[in-house]
Structure formats: C-alpha cells, structure tokens
Nucleic acid binder design. Structure first.
Lengths: 355, 355
DNA sequence: TTGTAGGCGTTATCAC
DNA sequence: GTGATAACGCCTACAA
C-alpha cells in the first residue's frame, strides 16, 4: 500500500489539493502547514507517482534510447553519456536494444510510444522507410546518432561524426608514413557510415595522387569475427598492400588477431588503423592507431537537442537539424614505430541542415 | 494530439468501454464491432497510453536496472541479457547508472520508485546500510547481481557467481602449471567479491600445501589503470612470484599492458589469470586465461526471479533467495604455453538461502 | 452485447 | 490560504 497525497491529506486534516501544493513548493500555502505536510510526507514515506503526474502534465520526464546492442563498447559509451546528461536534466531513460533485428527495432519504438517518452534517441542504426514511418508516428522528436535515415521524416534530427573527414585523416596518416598500397576493410554493405568512410579513404588517396584500386577494398562485417577472412583476402595476392584502414576498431582488432595467428607482423608487414577508439583499442597489442569519436560529447549533444526539441528546459534551440562533430587521429603502435600524435581538435562544425 | 479510446469511441459511435474491451481482446464484444473498432484504431494511429493503464492496473510492466557504469563490458553483457529477457516477458527497462557515487545510486532508486517499476535489478554494487533502507522502501522486489548487501533487507534476493569456487579454479590451474609463488592482485578493499576471490585463492593454496603469504597480496582498484602499480609491487622484490591471479580481467589487462611496457614476458616470466571473461579477454596479447562468468544466464535468472517475485507471469517461483552459478576456467595464452581447456560445466548450484 | 459510473494519483482552475 | 471539482486515459464492476 503506497501512500498517496490523499492519505497525507487525511492524516494532516487538510484537502489533497493543499498537500499537492505544499509538496510542489507552491507559494499559496502557509509556511507552517507546508512544513507540517512535508514532514508528514517524509514520515509516511511518501513517493510521488510519476505516472499520475505525467498523465496530467503531459510529459513523462523520460527519454528512450534504442541501440543495436549495448554490448558494443562504442555504443555503451554513448549510452553512458546519454544517461548521464539525461539525469542531469531530471530525465530518466528507457533502454531498448534491437540486436539489429528490424522487428525488434519497430517493437521498441512502439513500446516507447506507449510509454509516452518525451523524446527518443536512436544510435548506430540504419533507418529504413518502414521504420521511419513508425518514428514519424511517435509524436516525440527523434534524434539519430551516427545513423542515417533513407528518407528523412519531419521529426528526425541527428548528430553524426564526420566519417569522411575521419577516414581521410586515417588514410592520410598512413600515406604520410610512406604507404602507397592501402587496403580498406569495409563494414556491412550499404551502411552509410561505411560509405562515407570509404569516400574519405578515396579522397585521401586522390589527394596523394594514388590510384584507387577496387580490389583493395574487402567487404567485412563490422564485427571482430571477420578478421581472418579479411586478412587472407588482403594477403593472398601478388601485390600485397602494406597497410589497411579498417571500417572500425572491432574489425581492426579482428585483423590484428588474425595477423598474430598467421604470423604477419604488425605494423612491420602490415600497418593497421581503425575507427572509433573504443576503450580497448589502447590495450590490444600492438596498440591500435585509430580515429577517436567524441562519444561523450555526441551523447550529450543528442539529449540536449532532444530535450530542446521536446520543449524541455534546455535554453536555446540548436539552429541546425544535423550536428556533425569531428573525430581526431590517435596514433599508437599499429601504424608504425615512431610514436607521435597528430592532434586534430575535436571541435564541431555544424553543417547548416543536412539532407 | 494523440488519439485516445474516447476518440475512437466517438468515431465508431460506441462508448469508450466498448472500445476498451474490443482492444483488450475481451470476449464480451460482438466480433464485428470488435473488428470495426480494431480497424478504426489502426487507421487513426491509436497507441495505448501505458501510464494510464498502469495507473489503474497497478503494474507498470517496467523494471529498473541500476549499474555502476554501462561502460564496463561485464556489466554491459548482463544488461544486454536483462533487457532481452525482460522484453521477452513484455517488460521494458529503465537504466540508471551511478558511476559508483552513493548519491547517484540513491537518487536512482528514488527515481525508480517514483516511476513505480515492478522490480529492480542492481548489479555489481556494494549495498550499504543507508542504501538498503531506500531499497526496502521501494515496495518492489530487488534482486542483486553479484552484489552483497551489508545488511539483508526483507525484499532483497540475489544471483551471484561462486567467487570462491572460481578463484579456486584459477589458482589451482596456476598451481598445476607448476607455480608455487602466486600473487593476488586484489580489487577495491572491502568489496565482498574481492573478499571471496581471495578466499578461493587461499583455499587453493592451502589444498596444495602452499603457505599463504600476505605480502603477495597487492591491493588494486579493479580498473585497468592499476596495472603499473601492481606490476612494480609484484616484481620489485627479492622473491619475485612467477604468477599472478587478478581480481578481474580489467586488472589483468592492466597488468599485461604494464608488463609489456616494462619488458616482463608473459607468461614466461609471469603467468597471469583474470576473472570475468569480458569479451576482449580473448583479444589481448597474450590472450587472457580467465574465469568465465555465465553472464547471459545470470541476467536471465535475475529478471525471471524479479518478475516471479513481482507476481508476474513467470510460472514457478524459485525456491531460494540466492541463486549461485558457477563460472568455468577458460585457458588461453597468458597462463602458459600448452593450449588446453579444462572445462567445468557452467551448471549452477542453488545454495539454500544465503545470508 | 453494450453503456454508465467510478476510480487510479496527480495537477489545475475555480470559488470561498 | 484552502477546499471542492474537473480533468488526464484507461479499466472494470454494475446496470441495462
């Protein structure tokens, strides 16, 4: 039997409206009854019912976050930032993971709608047309992190990392280290992140007047288990490349592991660069050179954007529908002997609108 | 303007109760009006308001999970399992992370109470007396995963790994590999997990008639950054140990990294064994020998227990207040050259009650 | 088979 | 200052 304001009212000999006011720090209560009621509430172990409140207020002080899997360390870091800044704004977060299954993702959105969340954040997902329809019906603003919708809806906004820029940074680094034959270990096909990173890879090659060779692009999965396949695809050829830029750190780590078992020396025989800078990138051997995404900032920006859009208490609305932040190159061991760090400030560049 | 059952009622020319019944698959509606209403609901884009429903039903179909940080890969795997099986039972989960700050943890419990979650799961936390008081007030059942409360409340249950058994397994493995001087790199002081693992370590030593030497126990933090300190503490002595059993994988990985920079060869000069089997344990170099906790099972058991306690739809109540599962030894490279796997089935042993 | 009325725990708008 | 009263959206006796 949870105690309600009515119970307190009874105990205090006042009406429930007075209790509501007293608890809500309303100025229209006499100081002493306010004190008395607040003390009573504490003694009786009162806890306000958020649902009842939301029902009348029209806002739940809750945001939803849908992820593929929280098990991905990259996503975990973003979720951490999201939860943290949501908390700072008095919001709580409902977590839904889809395991990359379309049905689960739609179910998640459906569930978040029923729960009447004030906003939802979607991370690392490819948003198809079908899914988008559900998002539009949501009624709540949606902000995508590192995701792209095939068809932009009226309610979607996003914060993304500049994939092209990061890939260009990574590939350029390899080129400056003297590599000319550089493979690209791609992620899942048709993923826009992958598309943009490949574009950056090609751009860097172009700027160095190195011809792009399609056969140096090998399709991976974005998961650690594609390392072996990728390695053989890269090394079993007459003109073996001397370096590989990987779609992400997981791929790179898989490649590293495969290289170790296959006796391929990294970075001597094959230099490797990843993308993401997941926590473990620094602890694999050799430590992974990679592009660091400003994950905490991305999570923070996403919820602030979401709350602003939801008409929350965040002061100023962002003037753009798409916030793009830049990653920075973190040089470690996997790309060569000399230790050095080329620092690219993680500043952002808000592109005015996107689509 | 979200559409409610009243809107549908108006459009269908019936009362809202009829709509409610039709949508709830009640048998007391004529098939054709039911069809008509359901179609109408779909067309109008109706989404039931979970809060309003919970308000009258008395259950929110929501569980809360409070973690220290979702960034810890071990916790992430548990949360993944929790979210997944919660979903399978029609529940959604609110995530709250405390960053190990007591105030945040209490705030989280407070918030979950207001949100009227049907149960809460707490993972990897030390539950102090103060905190326990809040948990007791919760009104909802609490199940702890790998946590121990200093003072058992009426509403707390738990699923834990058999730390002593696991540590014994790990240390025994090292002993069978011929090591006699084995260090223990501990976790945070006063943590019960640490306490139990140390007990297992001592037990294994005792069974092999090796005297326990207090100076071989070095206090760590449980985080990866204590590697350097631990290494020097272990190696800067006349009688250097030949092996180290670490409180957890993060500690072990920190140690591995420190060893690499310090030029200490693993496993030749120092064999290392961890605990947890986080995803990356297999990818560090040398790959880490460790004790694998059955995380998916633990998460699953925890929510099933929680839902059963909450009077949910889970069939049979577990007969015990504390489910304890056993880990298994996973032999990789960091504990010696010979590759072999000693397999200990991840069966459970429900201890009858615990405290 | 359907409609009416009441209530879940709040906040808000009135009067007094 | 304080107390009725009416929502919010839903479910569920009870009555018709």
């Amino acid at each position: 039997m949870t105690v309600s304001i009515k119970d307190i009212a009874k105990a205090a000999g006042v009406s429930h409206s007075t209790v509501s006011r007293a608890l809500g720090e309303s100025p229209l209560v006499s100081p002493d009854t306010k004190d008395r009621i607040q003390r009573l509430a504490r003694e009786m172990g009162y806890s306000p019912d958020a649902q009842a409140r939301s029902l009348v207020m029209g806002r739940t002080q809750t945001i939803g976050i849908v992820v593929t899997t929280i098990t991905d360390p990259f996503i975990a870091e973003i979720v951490q930032a999201v939860e943290s800044t949501a908390h700072d704004h008095g919001y709580s977060v409902i977590l839904a993971s889809s395991n990359s299954r379309r049905r689960r993702e739609i179910a998640a959105v459906e569930m978040l709608r029923s729960k009447r969340v004030d906003a939802v954040i979607v991370t690392s997902s490819r948003v198809g047309a079908l899914y988008q329809a559900h998002l539009d019906q949501l009624g709540a603003p949606v902000v995508l992190i590192n995701s792209r919708s095939e068809q932009r809806g009226p309610y979607t906004f996003s914060v993304t990392v500049d994939n092209r820029h990061g890939a260009c940074l990574a590939t350029g680094h390899l080129i400056r280290r003297g590599h000319r034959r550089i493979a690209y270990i791609a992620g899942a096909a048709n993923h826009s992140d992958d598309f943009d990173r490949m574009a950056g890879y090609r751009q860097a090659l172009g700027e160095a007047n190195i011809a792009f060779e399609p056969s140096l692009v090998v399709r991976g999965t974005g998961r650690v288990d594609c390392g072996e396949e990728a390695l053989t695809a890269v090394m079993d050829r007459s003109d073996v490349p001397s370096a590989a830029f990987c779609y992400n750190d997981m791929t790179a780590i898989g490649l590293l592991r495969a290289a170790r078992t296959a006796g391929v020396s990294v970075p001597r025989e094959l230099a490797v660069v990843g993308f993401d800078d997941i926590p473990f990138a620094a602890y694999v051997s050799p430590a992974l050179t990679t592009i660091a995404q400003p994950k905490p900032e991305m999570g923070k920006r996403a919820v602030e954007m979401a709350l602003a859009l939801a008409g929350g208490e965040v002061s100023d609305l962002p003037g753009f529908t798409n916030v793009v932040v830049r990653g920075r190159l973190v040089v470690r061991e996997s790309s060569g002997e000399r230790m050095q760090v080329e620092h690219q400030p993680a500043s952002e560049s808000d592109g005015g609108g996107s689509s």
